[in-house]
Each structure stands twice: as structure tokens, then as C-alpha cells.
């Protein structure tokens, strides 16, 4: 039984592509056959984060237009057996995606893969709409900041009213909230919304809280999904989120201010 999962947010720059790469890699690490599809036509990024930018020949739009077969366009990840990437086109725009085309490609992917991760573009227009239209589940990525929370709220409203499941009156898309760039220190200083604040405003289940971490930027620049960096707090937090997505009960970590030890205070440890 395959599952189409959309990673979306409304607002840009909150970590949708980082999350798509991390969650997709995490699922593949756990033995699930997974494909990550970049819906951000014109602003292709997923291939960079996944470190496969030099191997893109055909893309999503080529497959929709029938210029290439799906198997020609799928890029196999070099690190993991079960992981594939379908890149977006960089030379086209969102109008190159059509509902019929997207539906055909996703249906075909769902036959081959256990998980189809749709990396949504920012906004609530055509690209974002098509990315979530056929989804079975959604991960809404939010930063602990009021404008991001409001945009996520808007996106949750669209997920419950403008998806295929909603239009056909089927069981609604299951919604999960992922809070990224969380900094317990700043929450303690009252500069940032807390996990409880965000949960209260959006009233949906929290699937993970990813701490603000230098490891994320480093991983992006190196083209290695941050979840593979299991030394880092962000990598571990993503790993927990994948476990929760698969139905495991895992306690949340990295929510409290880390007490600095004596030596760290003396010599100034890393942030």
C-alpha cells in the first residue's frame, strides 16, 4: 500500500526541501522504497540538497510531456538502495505542470514505490496546489514565528478543502506538523514561539521539532541529507520524526535549554 506524502508550508524558506530530503532518506534507510519528487518547477533545489545535481538528464516536466519515460527520469541515490529522486525542470515554470500529467505520473510512481514524497513549492498557487492535491498525508513545515504559523494555518485549511480526498468526500489527508529552526534558548528569552504555542494555534499533531543547527546548512551545501549526519541534533530529530511518521512512539528531544557543563562554560563550547 503506497502512500503519497506532501511536504508543504505556504511560506518559503522554512525548510520544505531539507525536510523532504531528510524524511525521504530516513524512510529509505528504514528499508522503504521511496521516491522524492521536486514540484518546484523553475526553482529546482532538491537535486542540490540530495547531491545529485550532476546526474539530472530528464525531469518531471519531460515525463509529463512524454519526452521521457519515468524510469529514464528517475535518479537513483548513490548512497541508498531504495531511494530515488525525480527532479523538477529548471527551465520551465509552474504552468508546465498539469493536473492530468501530475496525476498520471504520481499514480505510476505509487505502483513502484511505498512512499512518494512531494516537495511542494512555496505559496498556495498552482505548483503548491498540484503537489498536495493527490496526497494521502501532509507534513506542514513551520518555523516558530507568527507569519510562518499563519501561512501554515492557511495551508492546513487548503489541505482540508482543496485536495482530491476532500473533493471526493473521502477520509481527509492526515496532517502532521514539523517545527524547524527551533531554538529553546530563544524561546526561554521570549523571542520565539514555543512548541506549545504553535501546537495551540494550529491544533494538530506535532511530528517533530528540529532544533536550529549549523549541521543543516553544512549538509545542504555538501548535498548530503542532514538525517545522514547522525552526530547532529538536527539529524537525530529528523530520525525521530521519521519513526513517528511510521507510527512509533518516540519522546521529543532537544526541546529544553542545554545546560552547559563546567568545561564548556570555561572554554566556550559550540552553540
Amino acid at each position: 500500500m503506497s502512500k503519497i506524502l506532501v511536504v508543504t508550508s505556504g511560506k518559503g524558506g522554512v525548510g520544505k526541501t531539507t525536510t523532504s530530503a531528510a524524511i525521504g532518506t530516513g524512510l529509505a534507510l528504514r528499508g522503504h522504497r521511496t521516491v522524492i519528487v521536486d514540484f518546484d518547477v523553475g526553482l529546482r533545489n532538491l537535486d542540490l540538497i540530495m547531491g545529485c545535481e550532476r546526474r539530472v538528464v530528464y525531469d518531471f516536466v519531460n515525463v509529463i510531456n512524454g519526452d521521457a519515460t519515468l524510469n529514464q527520469a528517475l535518479i537513483k541515490d548513490k548512497r541508498l538502495e531504495n531511494l530515488y529522486i525525480l527532479a523538477a525542470s529548471q527551465t520551465r515554470d509552474k504552468d508546465a505542470l498539469t493536473l492530468e500529467g501530475v496525476e498520471k505520473v504520481l499514480t505510476e510512481l505509487a505502483e513502484q514505490f511505498e512512499f512518494v514524497i512531494c516537495d511542494s513549492p512555496a505559496g498556495i498557487e498552482k505548483g503548491a496546489h498540484l503537489a498536495m492535491y493527490l496526497a494521502d498525508a501532509a507534513i506542514v513545515v513551520t518555523n516558530p514565528e507568527v507569519s510562518s504559523v499563519r501561512d501554515s494555518d492557511r495551508m492546513l485549511g487548503l489541505l482540508s478543502s482543496k485536495s482530491k480526498r476532500a473533493e471526493e468526500g473521502r477520509e481527509p489527508i492526515s496532517e502532521h506538523l514539523l517545527l524547524t529552526r527551533y531554538s529553546p534558548e530563544r524561546v526561554a528569552r521570549g523571542e520565539m514561539l514555543s512548541v506549545e504555542d504553535v501546537e495551540e494555534i494550529l491544533s494538530i499533531q506535532m511530528i517533530g521539532v528540529i532544533p536550529e543547527s549549523q549541521a543543516v546548512l553544512k549538509a545542504s551545501n555538501q548535498g548530503i541529507p542532514v538525517i545522514l549526519d547522525d552526530e547532529s541534533d538536527a539529524g537525530q530529530a529528523y530520525s525521530d520524526a521519521v519513526d513517528r511518521l511510521l507510527g512509533k512512539e518516540v519522546p521529543h528531544r532537544f526541546l529544553d535549554v542545554q545546560k552547559k557543563g563546567f568545561l564548556q562554560r570555561m572554554f566556550g563550547g559550540k552553540e
Partner: peptide, 8 residues
């Protein structure tokens, strides 16, 4: 019975 979201 469902939350009424921003924009609805």
C-alpha cells in the same frame, strides 16, 4: 467540528 483555518 473541524478547525476553521486562516483564509476560510
Amino acid at each position: 467540528t473541524q478547525p476553521v483555518r486562516s483564509g476560510q
